[in-house]
């Protein structure tokens, strides 16, 4: 296996008395989709936010391509090549679809502090190319506020790709979508991850997506990793069945 793109080593995080993340380690390689699952309150979100810089670890370390991310803010981590999508879509509602992507490109190319140029003229073609990749080209001129939910998710993906990332972080990427849309979005993501050789870490509650799309799965409960492996290994792990999957439902509450 090639050197990991993302490496988390013995992450620790406490909130008051609660040990939210306790000694969690994992790696994601280029071209790999790694799913992080577990019950509500298991520490997934905390773990996720330690990786993206939203939270600071009390112990352990996160490395991107061997470089430590300790103490870096989310925007600095982004500059190192980490793209993100959010559980609840976060886009710029007062801009068009194209302008949303242009904004990310403007930031990536460090054009932000120019005061006299017209923003809508910057990187227009590039933005449209990215939108085409996620199948949003024909909606480029629409206000982002009127998009259907599934399209917002695709727009987020395009924004996340604007800085040509090495690592893609997706927090519950398919929450709130219909089954077919979920599969479509994750197929799209998987294709891009393979083609660009990205590493992708995602959390998810839909077991169809997890078992169908992830190359590897890690399972958390009460702040600790309790299982790691392929879909089959995780599905048949008794501990995972007990705390998370339940009595045999293969498809969870998405």
């Amino acid at each position: 296996m090639s050197a990991p793109v993302l490496e988390a080593v013995s992450l620790e995080k406490r909130f008051g008395g609660v040990h939210a993340v306790a000694g969690v380690s994992f790696r994601v390689a280029a071209g790999e989709m790694l799913a992080l699952i577990g019950p509500n309150g298991a520490g997934k979100s905390t773990c996720f936010n330690l990786v993206n810089g939203q939270l600071r670890a009390d112990g352990g370390e996160v490395r991107l391509g061997g470089q430590s991310l300790a103490g870096l803010r989310p925007r600095a981590i982004w500059r190192l090549g980490v793209g993100r999508t959010f559980q609840i879509t976060a886009t710029f509602a007062s801009m068009t679809v194209r302008e949303n992507v242009q904004m990310a490109l403007i930031s990536h190319r460090r054009m932000l502090w120019s005061f006299l140029a017209r923003a809508t003229d910057q990187f227009r073609a590039e933005a449209e190319a990215l939108l085409a990749q996620v199948g949003m080209a024909e909606q480029a001129g629409r206000p982002c506020g009127v998009l259907a939910y599934g399209d917002l998710k695709r727009l987020e993906l395009a924004i996340a790709l604007a800085n040509d990332p090495k690592l893609l972080l997706m927090d519950e990427p398919t929450a709130g979508m219909a089954p077919k849309e979920r599969t479509a979005l994750m197929d799209l993501t998987r294709g891009i991850v393979r083609a660009r050789g990205l590493a992708c870490l995602f959390t998810e509650h839909d077991m169809d997506v997890v078992f169908g799309q992830a190359d590897r799965i890690i399972v958390m409960n009460r702040g600790r990793l309790i299982a790691e492996g392929t879909a089959d290994q995780v599905r048949n792990d008794p501990a995972v069945r007990e705390v998370y999957l339940g009595s045999g439902a293969t498809s969870g509450g998405h």
């Binding site: 019950p39 509500n40 519950e172 929450a175 509650h205 705390v243 998370y244 339940g246 509450g253």
Partner: peptide
């Protein structure tokens, strides 16, 4: 929505 399979 957003609940683990056991809670569901």
């Amino acid at each position: 929505e957003g609940l683990a399979p056991v809670i569901v």
